[in-house]
Design a binder for these strands. Structure first.
Lengths: 225, 225
DNA sequence: ATTCTGTATATTGTATACAGCTATACGGAA
DNA sequence: TTCCGTATAGCTGTATACAATATACAGAAT
């Protein structure tokens, strides 16, 4: 892993962004575990790039809070605690409550169609026990709803936080009863959205996120972070 | 501005961080206005540094959302809208509501003493019409209270947002009635905190931030952003 | 054995060099 | 004059080179 030659690709984006995505993915999936040191020369070699774009990627990750910088010692992947997970879900819930009014106001029939399609795809993934697909679709569902709002900065806060917990989505989905319940909740949320029932939506989202949080925390407690 | 030779300093921190702070300050104060293009070679020369650390600083600012990157054209300072200000205050208020319970729980006598000292210093600044000092002290007051919480991630969200509005604090303080009212509200907040009166604190903070927001928006509307 | 210290090695911090893209200016033709 | 193509200058993207610092390890002194 972390190998591959970028020089052959049609570079529409800077190499630093590709390196950034790659490292971020590795950290989020846990491939690069907490505490792992990122040695510039080693990673630059593996990615077949020079240190310059790699360092720029590291500076971004630093601001993201995914890695920690130590003077003259480089960067290490930061650790997560249960308290972090708790806060992340709390923030997300709180921000969602702020978004919902504008979402209810702005949702269109076309949006609902998109959501229904995603839900039916989750049906399939659930039936086929394709949990990777399900994790991705779940995220699409949430992102679609969030994107209906016009509050760009609030949306960004949610995005920033969500990055951190993507890593745990597999853990959460691994719970049999949770993945079925979550899907049911999603359907209810879509229904409430279609009715533009703000209060019900708030209730559903608060419940949904709380349940996800608890499942996530419980799973992490059992299997270690 | 943007000049100064770092090479003579005892460099306890990397140059890139110094450049980062410098640029951030310039952007926040409006010295570098929205839309201004940051040409790497020019700024590196002015700061008497090479492009490498400057670019790393720019990548951080990019993640902060303070500058915008355009492929092969470098970075430009991002613009702010009234909607941004509205969202920033909304986020801050919402996050504060999440922090207050732990703040009320954790506040000590020593903390209250610190807060009282800050308040008395604001008294002086107010009497002397030293608005720069007042802006800084106000911020210290808020930061002190926020720091009483142990919710690091929520605190960080607040910090991130506050950076953006620091730039408008002068605008807000310029309002005669607002600066006196704000100070009164601060005192009431300190009192409520000392009594560990959570509900009253929530009420006071919500009111305080709402008033600040309205003053800020009104001021920006009048004087332009 | 333990601790200190000097040296070699590894790694980060910064500068510079060079390649490639973009925009602009200029000149010529319609 | 206007349009278009080309040349040129300026700037970004990346690689490489060099400097400074930290770490590891071996050997000496206690």
């Amino acid at each position: 892993m972390y190998s591959g030659d970028f020089s052959t690709m049609p570079e529409s984006r800077p190499i630093r962004d590709i390196a950034y995505d790659r490292l971020k993915h590795a950290i989020i999936t846990g491939e690069l575990p907490a505490g792992a040191r990122i040695v510039e020369t080693a990673f630059a070699d593996q990615l077949h790039i020079s240190r310059t774009p790699l360092r720029e990627a590291l500076r971004k990750l630093e601001r993201d809070g995914l890695v920690e910088y130590v003077l003259r010692r480089g960067v290490v992947v930061r650790a997560f605690t249960l308290a972090d997970i708790d806060e992340i879900f709390t923030i997300r819930n709180s921000m969602m409550m702020l978004l919902l009014p504008s979402i209810v106001e702005r949702v269109t029939k076309a949006d609902m169609n998109e959501l229904r399609i995603i839900l039916s795809e989750i049906d399939v993934a659930l039936a086929e026990s394709d949990f990777d697909a399900m994790a991705q679709l779940n995220r699409s569902f949430h992102r679609k709803i969030e994107s209906l709002s016009d509050k760009k900065r609030i949306l960004r806060v949610i995005d920033d936080q969500e990055e951190y917990i993507t890593r745990f989505s597999a853990v959460t989905i691994a719970s049999i009863e949770r993945r079925a319940n979550a899907h049911e909740e999603h359907k209810q949320m879509a229904d409430a959205l279609e009715r533009r029932d703000l209060e019900e939506l708030k209730r559903l989202f608060a419940h949904h996120l709380e349940e996800s949080k608890q499942t996530c925390i419980a799973a992490v407690k059992n299997r270690g972070l």
